[in-house]
Design a protein around this nucleic acid. Structure first.
Lengths: 337, 337
DNA sequence: TTGTAAGCGTTATCAA
DNA sequence: TTGATAACGCTTACAA
């Protein structure tokens, strides 16, 4: 068996509490005793038992991250990866561990189990996993948590971090207008999610009075996109397309090609999200990039503050960054890398 | 404060141990008492304290997954996501939790901390994080662990799961030969990693006697790829290219285009890995798909067995699957989806 | 600056 | 089938 605090105490000839105090710096101990204890710890290769410690203190030094795997997009998505990396880093800097749980959507929620079983001191939860019942539960328990993504309900009373989708849409739209496409069309899968709503809001803000609003919903179906675009917005010549995903952008570009409309030149494309896909398209897509590392970082930092009882900013938006590539230009410039 | 086992005991008028036995089914208890205890647990909304339990039993019911973030590719990579999802699922089915730790490569390793601090009962470690020192440490401690990816050293004495890169290379090569490209060239970033070595091995096995071996290393540099290919292998006409990554495949395709060589038709491409990128290329790339879900699942299952002391298969290869798309065909068939 | 002793919630050992 | 009692390793009043 591994050495315990008692073993150290015995060897040095002090009480266990003294050893504990040296380990935690929780009380002043004479230099001499401290040195002897340190020495003994090294000799016995002593390492504090985190289990025992967390049991004694009531603190686990662990935060939980909920992933929502019902949402398949998480996979094609570097979102999760970078966020996890960032979260882990922040936690580690505070000597916290990261527990990952999957929200299987069942009622015997794993999320509640983490709280009730006292397995974690705080939670980071995707907005897709947040329902009223869970919010009530967490609030009743006064349990620290942060939501990733602006939630559809109770957004005011719950702390969250999100990407500034509105700003991203504004910048994407303006890029197309600025490049010389007088009309900009927003193409999204649907308008039911909060993030889609925010993108539409930003788009509206940007086109306001400069051109007419044209929003097309794909409902996740991309065959026949060209014809639908023509039907809903008229000629595609000289239009800029603000696409809400790389996939939409791909099918838009394909539709335009089939209709003999050059990109860039005859039409421009800007897409949300910057997966490797975007840069490798022909032409490379101008993208509204989301810093998911930052998103995770902010979420973790906010959670750390919550767990330590600090009253702090409750909502944070991460700015997007426009990566200008060929697809949004107006005058075709071939030969660029 | 939340209810404890003692509260239940007091209400029902039994001893705490009896309550514990009902909870764990660790000894036969009369139906009547059992019912009363169950009832009381419901009434007080009792949930066992996992911390206390793990302290008492010495079992954390938690497994650790090490991620190696020094390896940037992890990000563009659905690898990690799907594997994590699978691992979490297996663990959850066994009532285990998943702890994520980042290997920061420093000597005060977080990995060792998990073991020494008794935070986890077992570990899943990427081969990139495995060095001799760590292996010795884990073996000395007789600590259960499984490696993801065949390790470069000590492969025989350590349990691991990996993708069958050799088989994948065989199938990819054969697809190109079968399609009618008499010469197949393998393009890889380097030959220093185990997985690259296995791919080369598979490629060699497949071309053996059917055509001459032509292996080109990019060393992660892709400008000028066309010229280098010509220089090292001669005319690119009628060649099949087995690319070790989607990125290589992209640049190969680009180079061929610039040289006026049609894909498919004049040349064929098969790529390892099936990121969204591959399917969205023009033409869509035939891909050697890696089931990372399966990889994670097997790793977790193997770990569960290790943790429960079962002697079991120590090495597992996950078969790859060839997804045939347009890029490996011989006769151009346009118009297909 | 240090020691004593209680306590954290659960399980496990021994008796009954 | 049940109950005492100790034990798990550490922290933390309270005393000294």
């Amino acid at each position: 068996m591994s050495a315990t605090i008692k073993d150290i105490a015995k060897i040095v000839g002090v009480s266990p509490s003294t050893v504990s105090r040296v380990i935690n710096g929780s009380a002043p101990i004479s230099g001499e005793v401290t040195a002897k204890i340190r020495e003994a710890m090294r000799e016995l290769d002593y390492h504090p038992n985190a289990r025992a410690r967390s049991f004694a203190t009531g603190i686990t030094n662990t935060a939980g991250l909920v992933m929502n795997a019902s949402n398949e997009t998480i996979f094609s998505n570097s979102f999760f990866n970078r966020s996890v990396f960032a979260i882990e880093k922040v936690l580690q800097d505070h000597a916290y561990n990261l527990l990952i749980a999957n929200d299987n959507g069942r009622s015997d929620s794993q999320i509640m189990d983490l709280v009730q079983g006292k397995k974690v001191d705080g939670l980071i939860i995707p907005s897709s996993s947040l329902d009223d019942r869970l919010v009530c539960f967490l609030q009743d328990a006064e349990f620290p948590f942060v939501v990733m993504g602006e939630p559809a309900r109770r957004a005011r009373e719950v702390p969250w971090v999100d990407v500034d989708n509105e700003q991203g849409a504004v910048e994407g739209t303006e890029e197309l207008l600025r490049s010389g496409y007088p009309e900009v069309v927003l193409i999204a899968d649907d308008d039911t999610t909060v993030f889609a709503g925010n993108r539409i809001k930003g788009y509206r803000k940007a086109v306001q009075q400069r051109c007419k609003e044209q929003v097309v919903m794909t409902h996740h179906r991309y065959e026949d996109l060209g014809r639908r675009l023509v039907k809903e917005t008229g000629s595609l010549q000289n239009k800029g397309f603000l696409c809400s995903s790389n996939e939409i952008a791909f099918y838009t570009r394909k539709a335009l090609k089939e209709l003999g409309i050059a990109v860039p030149g005859d039409a421009g494309i800007v897409t949300f999200d910057n997966y490797p896909l975007a840069a490798y398209m022909d032409p490379p897509f101008t993208a509204i990039d989301v810093d998911t590392y930052q998103l995770g970082k902010k979420a973790a930092e906010m959670l750390m503050e919550c767990m330590h009882g600090k009253k702090t900013v409750r909502h944070q938006l991460i700015r997007t960054k426009l990566l200008v590539r060929a697809s949004s230009m107006k005058n075709r410039r071939e030969g660029g890398q």
